[in-house]
Write a protein that binds this DNA or RNA. Structure first.
Lengths: 197, 197
DNA sequence: AGGGCCCGTGACAGAACGGTGACCCAAGCA
DNA sequence: TGCTTGGGTCACCGTTCTGTCACGGGCCCT
């Protein structure tokens, strides 16, 4: 289980010493010399940990971290050189809910509970949002009304399962470009609903 | 030559992700969930490095660092919030807590526990300040009333979660330019509150 | 082609939710 | 001791949400 580490450090001597040290300790090290280089390497293949200098040419460490966070929750450790030691390090949050889903031209920020299309916000109520998330999490799969009632409204919910239809309709009216011909959330007659994959 | 690391973080998702990442990177990780827990573990056995969240229940990161410093020169590293909200973060050498957060036109000096707008001081009470920090640490993310009660009031707090609403209102009345139309701290109906990103 | 079932949709009323002012107790302080 | 401040609780109210119903159109099967 070799951990793959991306080391981003512009100072050649620090970079080499650290790389050699970590390499000898059994890690698989890739090095990048500046922020742009780091992003390119990160996009090219996955890493288990990023060691990131704050002061970097072209793109500083904070900006690199910000861009990495758009698509990944990989642990990032920020390194800041100090006069005497290297003991200043800043860990960055890798919040579990800090990610975005996609459905067609919609972007869903799960943690922030927002939905946007082309950058403009589409306000949804809590039920609508939860329903949308449930559909997207199982995109391509048909979810029956009973299953949706279970998962969105709670397992103990007793009521008219037509409620789901109404909720779907309300969701579509906000989310579909043309609610009359839904493209994102499809009805599967006799079975339920599904989000397109 | 495994480095022993004490990771102190109350947020379970951050704690686990970081622990797994660093564990995979070959470090020996011990975790603590709050300040008191951290001091107990530190007194029990030695560590080579302490990763310390600033905002902690029971005893905040600064106080933990201060107490550790009485008996040890172990490197202490402060963990902060998200990459995308972080302005300046400074590691703690010997109690030099001087970093600032930002929210709209507010500047928050975490160490000094002051909030200023355009250079003028906005006095906040302790609860208001802690609440503000917690929201800013997760800017853009919706925090439920329960989570806020956990993190701001302490996880053992049992009480009316409407308390959060009142605290938010009091905070807004001091911090928002127009409290009637909040721009910095938004209500997400049915879910909770969030600070704008 | 006809009938039955399924689903979309508009309307409505009750429920849920959150903002807010008020009250009061406890802690801190002079 | 008496005053001040912070903060937890409560009640009220306007707004928003949402569960239900009824109607009608369309799809499928025979």
């Amino acid at each position: 289980m070799d951990a793959r580490i991306l080391l981003v450090e512009d100072d050649p001597s620090i970079r080499e010493v650290t790389a050699i040290g970590l390499g000898a300790a059994g890690f698989e090290i890739t090095t990048a010399v500046d922020g742009v280089d780091a992003l390119e390497r990160f996009r090219a293949e996955p890493y288990d940990l990023i060691l990131l200098d704050v002061m970097l040419p072209r793109l500083d460490g904070y900006e690199v971290a910000r861009q990495v966070r758009r698509t990944s929750t990989v642990p990032i450790v920020m390194l800041t050189a100090r006069a005497d030691t290297m003991d200043v390090v800043v860990g960055l949050e890798a919040g579990a809910d800090d990610y975005e889903l996609r459905l067609g031209n919609l972007v869903i920020d799960v943690g922030g509970r927002t939905v946007t299309r082309d950058g403009t916000d589409i306000p949804l109520t809590r039920t609508e949002f939860d329903l949308l998330i449930e559909l997207i999490r199982h995109a391509g799969q048909v979810l029956s009304r009973d299953v949706l009632l279970d998962r969105v409204w709670g397992y103990d919910y007793l009521g008219d399962s037509r409620l789901v239809d109404v909720a779907i309709q309300r969701l579509r009216s906000k989310v579909e470009t043309d609610p009359a011909t839904p493209e994102l959330i499809q009805t599967v007659r006799g079975s339920g609903y599904k989000a397109v994959r």
